[in-house]
Design a protein around this nucleic acid. Sequence first.
DNA 1: CAGTGGTCTAGACCACTGC
DNA 2: CAGTGGTCTAGACCACTGC
Lengths: 261, 261
Amino acid sequence: MGSAMNAHQHRERRTSVENELAFNVDRSSPVPLYYQVIQGVESAIRSGTLRPGCLLDSERKLATMLNLSLPTMRKAMDELVLSGRLVRKRGVGTQVASHSTSPLVLSSLYEELASSGKKPTTTVLSFIRQEADRDTLTKLQLSPGSGVYHFTRLRLAEGSPVALMENWVRDDLMTLKPEMLSSDGLYAVLRQGGVTFRLASQRIGASLTSACESSLLENEVGSPLITMERTVSDDAGQMIETGRHVYLADSYSFEMTLVQR
Amino acid sequence: MGSAMNAHQHRERRTSVENELAFNVDRSSPVPLYYQVIQGVESAIRSGTLRPGCLLDSERKLATMLNLSLPTMRKAMDELVLSGRLVRKRGVGTQVASHSTSPLVLSSLYEELASSGKKPTTTVLSFIRQEADRDTLTKLQLSPGSGVYHFTRLRLAEGSPVALMENWVRDDLMTLKPEMLSSDGLYAVLRQGGVTFRLASQRIGASLTSACESSLLENEVGSPLITMERTVSDDAGQMIETGRHVYLADSYSFEMTLVQR
DNA sequence: CAGTGGTCTAGACCACTGC
DNA sequence: CAGTGGTCTAGACCACTGC
């Protein structure tokens, strides 16, 4: 409607479009105001109300509209820019990034498969609680004698093997049971146990399928695999988990978005 | 020395250690104050003055010490926490993260090799300026008829092939010459041309060496390769470059640190 | 209860872009 | 020159942790 009425004004240089931030902040909510703004903008982008390239109102105007102070508004915009959803140009304004893929998050194979509609299942091949070996002590920065859960899992999508995963998790955070791992991804289980992730360092490479891997993954010996080693630490900087995974290159690849700072 | 003298005090609960933020901000500098603090803390961590686990003074104390306002101090701390170098605990304080790897940055194979002491060189195998094909138009979000540089390069470390790279770069940013690419990495060349990177989306997978790749990479047909496709956009959200690379899995892997938000 | 980080406000002045 | 984002200040009150 609006665009029809203003058809003769379309000469304007700006890639601007209407932007309707049709949300309001709820001051009685325990959710911080700046975070409500982040969620509001994110959902407006997701729903298409805020389209890529669209120029937002100025920070001052938005702050006034939502009855927020400028610093609070800026804090929200800061995070949206940092995560790559918005682009700021000094003297010009703030736009929705044209390239609005989801930001980099700790990817969970299980969740990825589930959200892409492929039914993920897990077969727990082995599961023990044991004293950590030297290598694990180092990787998890544990003191000698500490215990870990050590398990291997086969991940399937729609019943076909996709990945073979071996993990070591410190045993003083929560009680792990094999049953938990067969019905959910590892990260979901740990999150439920109250773990909040912070940093993951990982190394991704490639290798050829060995005879042993082949029998589990039901693929040919010598076919390409993606290898990943990952160590994850929590909020408090404490190491939580380390693992070695291999993925069928024919049915999986790592997608990620890096934000340059 | 210090540890011997204080041996009997080791009972204290805090992992705290002295923290000497032995830097001062320079108010005449064009570098923002909060950024000077970030740099100061980062260099203190790098140099070992601030050791992992070390408890910092409170934000209020640090602000007073450096003659900064609390919000400015907090902005610096915010970014240090976000990039994973510090860990905050409400009611307790702020510690240096035990796990202080470098944050995720747009990795450049050339720079990685150079900084690890391996002498990188590049052979430019082909180089043309051409009208973008359909696929490239889509990936770089260009309008039909736009031009791109299209080139393939062989990257060597200490004279041995490591990677085979094919790239497409929009041609309206700067003038590219093959000579530039043989003496420097692509990103360094683009940065010099005034491009500031912002987001990269990439997909990493694995494959087997083909006959053609084998002849260039001097490895065996069927040996494992890491494959990467990447598209990079700049500050303004404009797509800059897209490429398809393959790396010898035996001599390279992708290392990265993910920060969970 | 003293001290910490978490959130929020109401300003100020600057550098920059587009007209 | 009006409008934008970029930086900075000086406060306020809260929730939480450890003693």
